[in-house]
Nucleic acid binder design. Structure first.
Lengths: 211, 211
DNA sequence: AATACAGGTAAACGAACGGTTACTTAGAGG
DNA sequence: CCTCTAAGTAACCGTTCGTTTACCTGTATT
């Protein structure tokens, strides 16, 4: 992709993330780049095509990012489709890496904000939002926690419930980080939370019938 | 407020909540009510005035709702500004009532969705969103938990951290409820969470150095 | 019966929207 | 040197935006 085409994408995403798709105009996208809106149509055939191109790029980046930072299940050649030997520390590191990605990576952060603004306009956007940022991660973590519970690495409890309680602060802190801009504090709170979570749900330190 | 004026407010809010303030047009607001957009100006002097009226009404309703359902601190005449004798069960009931309010009450649910869509457009909306739905409730709960910890009704831990872990699933489930529409299931998950929370942070059942 | 007015309509306003067109221009390749 | 093309501009298209205006029409008051 040419430099200009790429910079149009980024400028458009930044406006979509702040104002929403409809409220961001082709003129404002072009204006931010120091060109006129007519020039945009040399690179994309419509406003919608820019949007579609953003979504396509996010899919590519997300796939790439998952390949690099996924919890080990994909790195165990012996049993690639099983969740084996995943430790609490693996999950914690993965969580912190994901938080940094969704807040520090400009493309990811803007894409997330854009989805936040578009989620009520169409079922497709709602589904995308859920699978990227809400229900999706919860059920992904539930699978991991189920496996950990089965090997006794996590206290016995409903894995979906555990996943929700583990993930929810991540989700809340994303929004707080957006509004306050205090990334350090949010990440610290998140790490404190994940540490507490595995401490409190460690089957070796839990003796009673707490869950 | 006249019936027409009120119904304009509700119709406008419903559109603001789905499309955002900018993307919702005066024509669509009027059309949904079976009148022409010119008639809207007999009741409100501008589109912005409708929006301001919505915010003002939300402030009134929220104040009223807080007065009715607040955690007991306001009902103790002897010490109105102190958090005394608040039990875990009080907090759990308050939480469930708040969840039902923010999902079942049409005005509150639409207002919350509207703020979600407007939060990145102005600092004022971001502040309103935070104080109503995110940081606000967390610090409110932190105050309550601090008092409970001091009287030994809650395990010793950073009250802000406790509040975040308690509130975050509430926040996540609001969004999931919006997208899936499965209010029963979300409320059940929330109640399961609040029960687990107070069970795991009960100083009488916690014996070790878990927090 | 005459008057005032609240609440509606239809049409128009200038501005901005997404998109198109005709034209210019700088540079690459033969 | 000529030609082709990619990338830009300015002006315009039809539509819709928020807002204003002139007009109508029941209903209540005097």
């Amino acid at each position: 992709m040419s430099d200009t085409k790429e910079s149009i994408l980024l400028a458009a995403l930044k406006l979509f993330a702040r104002d929403g798709y409809e409220a961001a105009s082709m003129s404002s996208i072009a204006g931010g780049l120091g060109i006129t809106k007519g020039a945009l149509y040399k690179h994309y055939k419509s406003k919608r095509a820019i949007f579609d191109s953003i979504v396509a790029q996010m899919f590519r980046e997300d796939a790439e990012h998952s390949r690099e930072h996924a919890v080990p299940e994909h790195t165990y050649e012996q049993a690639p489709s099983e969740y084996r030997e995943i430790t609490a520390e693996n999950v914690r590191e993965f969580t912190a890496a994901q938080f940094i990605y969704w807040t520090e990576d400009e493309f990811a952060a803007d894409f997330r904000r854009m989805l936040t603004l578009e989620q009520y306009r169409s079922g497709e956007m709602a589904r995308l939002y859920g699978s990227c940022i809400a229900e999706g991660p919860v059920s992904y973590l539930a699978d991991i926690f189920r496996a950990m519970t089965e090997r006794g690495a996590l206290a016995a409890a409903d894995p979906v419930q555990l996943a929700m309680e583990y993930y929810a602060p991540f989700f809340l802190l994303l929004g707080i980080c957006d509004r306050t801009g205090d990334r350090e504090r949010c990440l610290a709170q998140l790490n404190e939370h994940t540490a507490r979570f595995f401490r409190m749900n460690n089957p070796e330190t839990i003796r009673g019938d707490l869950s």
